[in-house]
């Protein structure tokens, strides 16, 4: 199934390029200037990177489950690579959020529930990558990584609920007010999210290709050593 991403790389990349261009035009030109100023335009890519982060994290859990059931190395590679992209996008989300918070809330960081949840997610998936970093050639650690990916994913709602409950986490929720978002802003957001998703899938396809190449090198080396 994931082979499709590797094979259709060019097509996905090209459509990502087109949509990203469109989304950048919409973000900077088409979307109306909001009351808090131009800085609000960070919002569109902030949402897009966050969505991608969650998407890849879900992929880590799904790949982990399939790896445990099917015991196919391809799913291990899928989980490992998805986690890499997940961490990349979560990092970008955190940086964008911080750069948006500074001019608007006058702080680089605030212990708002959504921020805390995202930060903890970042820690969880960095930990996942640490497990995977030592897992080459060790099926046991690969299975551990798969289990960890599943458990970590199941933990997300609980983590979020717990930081929401924490009394010092009261902060006006930004997104919840978006019910009254004007249509051009909503459209810009949707296009940005789709563009980023395509870009993420394109990068995932290329990352998976690297994984395939590594396996080919491995096979060739084995052939050379033990003909």
């Amino acid at each position: 199934m994931l082979r499709v991403l590797v094979r259709a790389q060019k097509a996905v990349g090209l459509s990502a390029l087109v949509l990203v261009t469109v989304s950048l035009y919409m973000v900077f030109v088409y979307a109306p200037r909001e009351a808090t100023g131009d800085v609000q335009r960070i919002f569109y890519y902030h949402v897009a990177t966050a969505w991608n982060g969650y998407l890849f994290i879900a992929m880590v859990a799904l790949s982990g489950l399939l790896y445990l059931v099917r015991k196919d190395e391809a799913w291990d590679a899928a989980g490992r690579t998805a986690a890499e992209l997940g961490v990349l996008f979560i990092s970008l989300t955190l940086i964008l959020g911080s750069l948006w918070a500074r001019p608007i809330w006058n702080v680089w960081w605030t212990w708002d529930p959504r921020l805390v949840t995202t930060l903890i997610l970042w820690f969880i998936y960095v930990a996942y990558l640490l497990i995977q970093a030592g897992a080459e050639g060790s099926p046991r650690l690969k299975r551990f990584a798969a289990v960890f990916g599943i458990v970590g994913f199941l933990d997300i709602p609980l983590i979020h609920y717990s930081v929401v409950l924490w009394p010092r986490g009261i902060h006006p929720s930004v997104l919840r007010e978006s019910g009254g978002m004007p249509f051009p802003m909503l459209l810009t957001m949707i296009v940005s999210v789709i563009a980023m998703t395509l870009l993420g899938l394109y990068l995932w396809g290329r990352r998976l290709e690297v994984e395939e190449l590594k396996q080919r090198v491995q096979r060739l080396k084995e052939q050379l050593l033990w003909p």
Binding site: R41, I42, Y45, L92, I95, L96, L99
Partner: peptide, 12 residues
């Protein structure tokens, strides 16, 4: 901040 933000995304 806006330009720094978008620059960081693309650099990343």
């Amino acid at each position: 901040y806006l330009f720094v933000a978008y620059a960081i995304v693309w650099i990343g």
